[in-house]
Design a binder for these strands. Structure first.
Length: 479
RNA sequence: GCGCCCGUAGCUCAGCCGGUAGAGCGGCGGCCUUUUAAGCCGUGGGUCGCAGGUUCGAUCCCUGCCGGGCGCACCA
């Protein structure tokens, strides 16, 4: 019994092909040239090429037909003539459908209308499509379908593949940039017995043999710092982290973080690193540091603007960071909860509600209140502040960095305080192995976290994070 | 989680103040050796997201549910 997943017309065609001795899914294919290079042969006259790709269009004229094949490099028209390919291939051609994968061999030239065309002497079916492609003019328009059927949207809609190619160039550029500065790329566990390094609700899972409850990591931070203790000195990881939170234009429950740590650096050094890295990434993706995004242009050329957290809060929220009464009053007028929350948290709620969305940037926001930076070192000259910055572009937080706290005693105190707070998003236990590592001596260091998906959104001018994640989380189909 | 909006053929979409549903593309059959969303002739295709309710009668109005979008919340 055949599944109802497939188009009955096409299943019938499949059987007819088989009964005629044609293998609809041959094990081997002719080795094709990229369509883009085959097209170049048009000007050289009489040059022969083999191409392979998906049939996107079909224009039959009796004993002649024009097909349009598409591969990753482009499209080419293929002319199939009965007199040229012979009866057998003509019969195969007659069973072709839009969406099938096909190889064609022949001379590349131009038709009398000037269209670059491969005049086929052979056509070989490479894979029969059992479902029809979307409507040829509009393509896939429904956002849900485009996401669920990403494997169709990638070839059926203009520009989708380019977004992911840009993302790939972005990641490659970051690797090259860090590798060039003596960083070593590492991979650390995604299963954590304690979900630390950030404040977020984790996903839980279980290992059967060890009978062990585990969390999926919410950050890369703690294992990478252990590697600083281990003497790696310059490390980074690009990897998936998981946060059990809502979904929005800027949020997917699993997303890709870059975290890097550099011994003997501080947050100012990391700010300079970020400027150069982002400029390099922009150039790698689009050849320029002028980045268009949602109708505006952002200059990714160093230096980026710097602004102090407290100054921005005063400018946009009209309150002094250390005037608790004013903070609480302002929070109430803004409709934010403040009762029972620490002043620094209230301030940060105000910052997020009133300041962040106005930060077009790129702008480094410097010197956060120390209370909301449990893993950062305080400013020696004013310990009310942590040596921390976040980078904002287009109202989005793209990077977060600080001079890393390496005082084991102070770190223990802070972590114990977090656990005692019983905050839903605080770790439920102190990561004593992390503290033990610090106790062996971690060099002073600057650390960085970058949301790769958001950076990809920026550089690909993609309005939602779903556009830069191939298979974003969705509810399963059916009900 | 909350609010607003959306769900009609494989796809893209119409469908008026409630009277049992249409187009284009695609499909199927036919014609055609130079097209560019090819054209022409013929033709099949629907649980109007699902389940209730109101009504003589529901794609249309109401309620609930499912899926999605946007916004809010959440997201140091």
């Amino acid at each position: 019994m055949t599944s109802e997943l497939f188009d009955p017309d096409r299943l019938r065609t499949l059987e007819r092909l088989r009964s005629e001795g044609v293998d609809p899914y041959p094990a081997r294919s002719p080795s094709p040239s990229p369509i883009a290079s085959a097209r170049d042969l048009a000007e050289k006259g009489e040059a022969e090429a083999t191409v392979a790709g998906r049939i996107l269009a079909h224009r039959p004229f009796g004993k002649l037909a024009f097909l349009v094949l598409q591969d990753r490099t482009g499209r080419i028209q293929v002319a199939v003539r009965k007199g040229e390919v012979g009866e057998r291939a003509w019969a195969v051609y007659g069973r072709l459908d839009l969406g099938d994968l096909l190889a064609a061999k022949g001379k590349v030239g131009r038709t009398k209308t000037g269209e670059v065309t491969l005049f086929a002497t052979e056509v070989v079916l490479l894979a029969k499509a059992l479902l029809p492609p979307p409507e040829k003019w509009h393509g896939l328009a429904d956002v849900e379908l485009r996401t669920r059927l990403r494997y169709v949207d990638l070839w059926a809609s203009e520009g989708v593949r380019e977004v992911f190619e840009k993302r790939a160039r972005l990641v490659r550029a970051i690797r090259a940039f860090l590798d060039g500065r003596g960083y070593v790329e590492v991979e650390t566990p995604t299963f954590h017995p304690i979900a630390g390094g950030a404040s977020a609700r984790p996903f839980t899972t279980h290992h059967n043999t060890l009978d062990l409850d585990l969390y999926l990591r919410i950050a890369l931070e703690l294992p990478l710092k252990k590697l600083l203790v281990g003497g790696l000195e310059r490390v980074y990881e690009i990897g998936r982290v998981f946060r059990n939170e809502g979904i929005s234009r800027k949020h997917n429950p699993e997303f890709t973080m870059l975290e890097s740590y550099e011994a003997y650096a501080d947050y100012e050094g990391i700010a300079r690193l970020v400027e150069e890295m982002f400029a390099e990434a922009a150039r790698a993706v689009s050849g320029t540091t002028e980045v268009p995004f949602r109708g505006r242009t952002y200059a990714f050329a160093p230096p980026f603007r710097r602004a102090r957290y407290a100054d921005l809060l005063r400018e946009h929220a009209g309150v002094d960071l250390f005037d608790e009464g004013a903070l609480r009053a302002r929070a109430r007028t803004a409709g934010l909860p403040e009762a029972g929350r620490p002043a620094a948290v209230v301030a940060n709620d105000l910052f997020e509600a009133l300041v962040e969305e106005r930060l077009e940037g790129p702008v480094f926001v410097l010197d956060y209140p120390a209370e909301i930076c449990p893993l950062a070192k305080r400013k020696p000259a004013d310990p009310r502040f942590a040596e921390r910055f976040e980078l904002f572009v287009a109202g989005m937080e793209l990077a977060n960095a600080f001079t890393e706290l390496n005082d084991p005693v102070l770190q223990e105190e802070i972590l114990r305080g977090q656990v005692a707070s019983r905050d839903e998003e605080a770790p439920r236990a102190v990561d004593t192995d992390f503290l033990r590592a610090l106790a062996y001596g971690m060099p002073p260091a600057g650390g960085l976290g970058v949301g790769i998906d958001r950076l990809a959104m920026l550089l690909a001018d993609a309005p939602t994070i779903r556009d830069v994640i191939l298979f974003p989380l969705m509810r399963p189909e059916r009900g």
